[in-house]
Amino acid sequence: MVLEGLKVVDFSAYIAGPGAAGILADWGAEVIKVERPGGDAMRHVFQDLANPLGSNPTFDVDNRGKRGVVLDITKPEGREALAKLAAEADVFLTNVRPVSLKRYGLDDATLRAANPRLVYAVITGYGLEGPEAHLPGFDVTAFWARSGLGYMTAPKGAEPFLRTSGVGDHATSLATVSGILAALYERNRTGQGRLVQTSLLVSGVYLMSSDMAVQLKLGRVASGRPRENPINAIANYYQSSDGRWFVHNPRGASGGWEAFVTAAGRADLITDDRFASGKARRQNARDLVVELDKGFRALPFDEIARRLDAADLVWAPFQTPGDVASDAQAIAAGAFVEIDDGQGGTYRSPAAPVRFPGADADHRPAAPRLGEHTRQVLAELGYDEARIEAMLAAGAAG
């Protein structure tokens, strides 16, 4: 595996930090997940889905293949053990608030003074500088709402809507992995590690950077449009006679206009004066949606798919998660990986979104139980059995 030999200490919770460390683990890094007493809060999500080992699919996707340790950093022995782990690591990854890390001597400056080669990656809601850098931030707040991404997703005038969590977290996971790998590349040249920082806010701004670039340059940006009133009626969602939706994304200015309306069974629209030019089609977009709806809603989905593919148009079905789970192309593309269930079997989970042909793992170990490897990891750090037992008794380890 491509990152074999890389040692990572994952002192993070929830999704963005564990997700970044989870990708590194999927690629072969040795990742030690350090949790506080009581464990990562994500362990307790969907407890009705928990398997007999005490984990759940939401937790497993970000923590599979790691080793698990419990340390209490409020106790000197716990802090010392975590610092020892960092002293032997290549990467220290955390989303604990910087003020707490500094208070306990686990900040970037302290840990990199002891291990100058350490790449220290910190994830926050709002960054490390600025008047509100200290504020807590989650996916839906810092990434979705404050970045402007949520506003740009809803049609103009629509009320804000709730969405599932984890999208911004996992986008930030990818950004964090990119930063860590860049810092490791730099370390190969200089011999020195560095601080790497990512935030949910900046990840959100970057993901809408095509629109944000227009805002910054021109001072305004087009709002989202409802389906019935698009800017371009052939860049839109349509529904089949059997109730399935699909989306078409045209190429270039005309975007296969004639091929698309022909696929809808509405070749007559090509000679309709309302739609005779690109400008006319934009001016009469509402009418064109109505006409195309009539065409596509008279056709079954399989026939629409056949016609669109035959015309080499760019389109895709609008799928539910259940649809994606059985999508043959998603499976072939490597969207899923098998995880050990701890009982001799496996189950499917989303795979990290990069493949290394010839070096991909077709399955991954289970996520660790809370504190499953505490004794083992402490012994590897040089702690003898008596000292380990004393730490456990004192609550410094668990």
Rank of each mutant, 00 (worst) to 15 (best):
M1I: 04
K7C: 04
K7E: 11
V8S: 04
A13Y: 15
Y14M: 14
I15H: 03
A16L: 12
A29V: 04
A29R: 10
E35T: 06
D40H: 07
R43A: 13
Q47T: 13
L49S: 03
L49E: 09
A50D: 08
S55M: 10
S55I: 14
T58R: 00
D62K: 02
G65M: 10
K66C: 09
E80P: 01
A89C: 07
T94N: 07
N95V: 09
V96H: 09
V96M: 13
V96N: 13
R97F: 01
K102D: 05
K102W: 00
L106K: 08
L106F: 01
R112V: 06
R117W: 03
V119P: 02
V119G: 02
A121M: 07
A121V: 02
V122A: 10
I123Y: 13
G125Q: 11
D139H: 02
S147M: 09
G148L: 08
L149F: 12
Y151N: 00
M152D: 01
A158Y: 11
R163S: 13
T164H: 05
T164E: 06
G166Q: 11
G168P: 04
A182H: 10
L184P: 02
T190W: 11
Q192E: 14
G193M: 05
L195M: 06
V196W: 07
L200Q: 06
V202C: 01
V205I: 15
Y206V: 13
L207F: 15
M208S: 12
M212K: 02
A213F: 09
V214H: 12
L218I: 00
G224K: 10
R227C: 00
A233T: 05
V247W: 03
R251C: 00
A253R: 15
A253H: 14
A253C: 00
W257N: 09
W257S: 03
A263P: 04
A267N: 07
T271N: 15
A280R: 12
Q283N: 11
N284K: 03
L292Q: 10
G295E: 03
A305E: 15
R307P: 10
D309Y: 10
D312E: 15
F318N: 14
Q319M: 14
T320F: 03
D323I: 03
A325I: 02
S326T: 13
S326V: 14
D327Q: 06
I331D: 04
A332K: 15
A335E: 01
G344L: 09
G345W: 06
R348H: 01
D360R: 12
D362H: 14
R364M: 14
A366W: 08
A367N: 05
A367S: 15
R375G: 02
D384S: 01
E385F: 00
R387F: 00
M391N: 05
A393L: 11
A397D: 07
